[in-house]
Amino acid sequence: MSDILQQLDQVLEARKADSPDESYVASLYAKGIEKILKKVGEEANETIMAAKDLEHSINIDEDKEHLVYEIADLWFHTLVLLASQNLTSADITTELQRRFGLSGHAEKASRPQE
């Protein structure tokens, strides 16, 4: 799985040098962080709606495919967000690895208080 994430990281980094007229990702970078955040929010909402549809589904297989499609869009736009902030999927997998095997309650309790 990390191979495709690494490949996406490389492509997203390369898109920083592309023309916004030639690349969707470059156009997001050119529009700035607010546009990227808006896209992540839109994709998160679409993921939520797809999950709700699946919960009450008559056509389980089709709705599962739709949920996977929406989550792929969400992941992709989240990777664009990371790249725009000079982060990569490796930063996230490192954090997930750090958390692996920890109780969710213990991990939450270890966070700095806001």
Rank of each mutant, 00 (worst) to 15 (best):
R99K: 14
S103R: 14
E42K: 07
E114W: 13
E107C: 10
Q6D: 02
A50K: 04
Q10K: 03
N86E: 15
H56E: 09
R111D: 11
Q113D: 15
R15T: 08
E42D: 13
L81G: 05
L28A: 01
L28C: 05
G101L: 05
A72E: 13
M49C: 07
H105F: 13
P20W: 10
E34Y: 00
S27K: 04
L102A: 09
A17D: 07
V25D: 03
A72Y: 10
H105W: 10
T47L: 05
L74I: 06
V68L: 06
M49D: 15
I71V: 15
M49R: 13
A14W: 07
E65I: 10
G32Y: 03
E95D: 12
P112C: 13
N86K: 08
K39A: 01
Q6T: 04
R111N: 14
D3F: 05
E55M: 05
H77F: 03
S27G: 01
K38V: 10
K16A: 06
Q6Y: 04
R15I: 02
S103E: 15
L82P: 03
E34A: 00
I58H: 05
E46K: 01
H77S: 05
Y69Q: 13
Q97C: 11
F76N: 04
K39H: 08
D9S: 02
L37M: 06
F100I: 02
Y29P: 07
S2V: 09
D3W: 06
E114V: 12
S89G: 08
L8E: 05
V11T: 09
L82V: 06
I92D: 02
L87Q: 11
G32M: 03
E34S: 00
A51H: 00
S110D: 11
S19L: 08
E34V: 00
A50C: 11
Y24F: 14
S2Q: 13
R111T: 13
N86F: 05
G104R: 02
R99G: 15
I48K: 06
K35T: 05
V80T: 02
R99M: 15
N59A: 12
L74W: 03
V11R: 08
D91L: 15
I33Q: 03
A44S: 13
E65A: 15
S27A: 07
T93F: 09
Q85W: 11
Q10W: 01
E13T: 09
N45H: 14
E65G: 15
E55V: 02
Q6G: 00
E62H: 08
L79N: 01
K31P: 05
V80N: 00
K64L: 12
E13N: 05
N86G: 12
K39S: 00
D73K: 09
Y24T: 07
K108S: 13
L37T: 02
V68M: 03
Y24E: 10
K38D: 10
S89C: 04
L67H: 12
V11K: 09
S57Y: 01
T88P: 02
Y24M: 11
E114F: 14
A51E: 00
